[in-house]
Design a protein around this nucleic acid. Structure first.
Lengths: 330, 330
DNA sequence: TTCATAAATGAAACGGGTTTCAAAAGAATG
DNA sequence: CATTCTTTTGAAACCCGTTTCATTTATGAA
């Protein structure tokens, strides 16, 4: 690989001048610039990014840490972040940490050691939280919120409201026997959804019926079986996310339980897949795009949320589709 | 950030000794090692990865370039590659190039400039192919194959056989009016699938009916409409991939066309989603895991496929599920 | 105890751009 | 034409681990 010194020799100038031509930091005489440019062209010179970022202490890179690359919610988020970052001349490095604290730690350390310009973390791990504060690069936490706020920026949705909306919609669609498949409690994102559901039920004299479940498909399948056994009367299900909702549907379908005629179903997240499967899934929409774009903005703003304080909440909304009864048929 | 020289001072040794303790390259006296370790601990020292890789010319990183992070086929592939790489002490950097040649180029250049130890590219872009040869880092092309083979290793599946299997299965299930939704021709992966289908039809006296379609969901939706219009007699559909198959199903479902009773459907890829949706999708299984793991092996083997030549083909198989008639009901 | 080997250790160079600082060249003023 | 202020430009230091190479220290044999 040709280096900057080779180019300099070829062009008959010093390495410093070559650097200046490349970066446009200082004006260079037209004839010399010309020679340098030609030498670069001829030798196919590409500046070594490692050397550059060693000095600059910036790598034009934003780290993105997600718990699972298999969950479409996170890949969608990563995709927007990617697009937003590229628009601003940054690239992202995606770390897929398989829900594993050690891998999260390792990713963080690597990013720090690699002079990343910031990190966007989608982690519900409270233990990691504390470590986050030790790094001096900007950190933004998305899709999570903690009591002990160590980091400057938390971006999350109004999950509580989402839980309420789901319960409200099912009730409005005629359900009287709601069951909530809630995510593991202790995780804010899961808990808030549940509490929204719970409060709505309490306020409207509905008995709250709950089943607990991990966020993935496999867990959704087995939990649904359990749910049907424990609550045979059920006529409305609030799932903790869309992937689980899809697995719920799968079981119902297998048992020939009609959706939405016998049981109505509401998911959470509104991933693309929700409107792609048949029947289309009624779900709580999260503004994933807006959240992702904002995360990048905040990182490039040194990790600070300007005026709003240390956290920013995004609104959710209910998208009625085919797994609940439409207005017309009510 | 504390540097190795700070640690050295604190421990009363030279930076060289600290480096040796960290890397275990040369034995260090027990008492000094002890002091160094304590100093590292106290100062929370983490070696700067950039400086390290500048010297080592290796970053323990494998680049993975995929055309779309939204297509589950590629995220699944990335996930295995990630796991396989981590097992061997490497990390991956995922580049999501949005099917864009310029972004592919940029990704490649960045990887080269970042001292990546190898690149795994899932690209059907022939133009990129040629450039690939210019880089001296190991490159493995997955899910593609070219006439002009510039790179040392191509990993791909027996797509042709997949096309045959799909046609054969539909025929065995009683279909007489097959239509193939083929991917954009010119791409080997798409063309081979189609040719398998075509040859089977010719050999068995079936008229070949074809419709062309991009690999994504939106294209699948509109193409299905067109298909039904052009071939109202259709009773079996071979889709170019699972995402398209899902969109086909969506349209059929919307039109109240029963699957598999009126029309049977075969996808391609066997992404997880295929068995997660309802009804479960009959599809051609690609050994994504094996391919991903092999890709990592080859990279760490300097990008060479040892004996087998410059390419390795993986077998496909048909997985009968719910969108075609099962043996029992035939 | 002494000389020869082997092992541990530090000083300095290295990798490859970038930037500082001072010298050199050019432009402007008197 | 001399003098001063600008603008270019190159030499060298820098970023920070790693490694070479020579020196020091330890080990073993004589």
């Amino acid at each position: 690989m040709a280096g900057i010194r080779d180019v300099a020799r070829q062009a008959g100038v010093s390495p410093a001048t070559v650097s200046r031509v490349i970066n446009g930091t200082t004006p260079v005489a037209a004839d010399k610039r010309e020679r340098v440019l030609r030498a670069i062209e001829e030798m196919g010179f590409v500046p070594n990014e490692v050397a550059r970022s060693l000095f600059k202490k910036s790598s034009k890179t934003i780290g993105v840490i997600i718990p699972s690359i298999r969950n479409p919610y996170f890949t969608q988020l990563a995709d927007v972040i990617d697009a937003a970052a590229k628009e601003r001349g940054y690239r992202i490095v995606l770390y897929n940490v398989h829900h594993d604290l050690d891998q999260e730690r390792a990713a963080l350390q690597m990013l720090a050691a690699a002079n990343a310009d910031g990190v966007i973390v989608a982690s519900n791990n409270e233990a990691l939280q504390e470590e986050l504060a030790h790094y001096q690069m900007p950190v933004v936490v998305v899709d999570a919120l903690f009591q002990t706020r160590q980091v400057n920026a938390y971006l999350y949705c109004d999950y509580y409201q989402g839980g309420r909306l789901a319960a409200e919609h099912l009730t409005a669609c005629g359900c009287r026997n709601l069951v909530c498949i809630r995510g593991v409690q202790g995780l804010y994102t899961a808990q808030a959804r549940y509490e929204g559901y719970r409060d709505y039920c309490r306020e409207h004299g509905l008995t709250e019926q709950v089943v607990e479940c991990d966020y993935d498909f496999e867990a959704g399948l087995s939990m649904t079986e359990e749910l049907l056994e424990r609550f045979p009367q059920v006529d409305g299900i609030v799932a903790c996310n869309d992937m689980v909702a899809i697995s719920v549907y799968k079981i119902l379908h297998k048992r020939n339980i009609a959706v939405p005629d016998q049981i109505q179903l509401v998911g959470f997240d509104d991933i693309h897949l929700a409107s792609l499967i048949s029947p289309e899934l009624t779900t709580i929409h999260q503004p994933i795009d807006a959240m992702g774009r904002r995360a990048v903005e905040v990182i490039l703003n040194e990790g600070h949320l300007p005026k709003e304080g240390r956290r920013q909440s995004f609104p959710v909304s209910l998208v009625p589709r085919e797994t609940t009864r439409s207005k017309e048929s009510r």
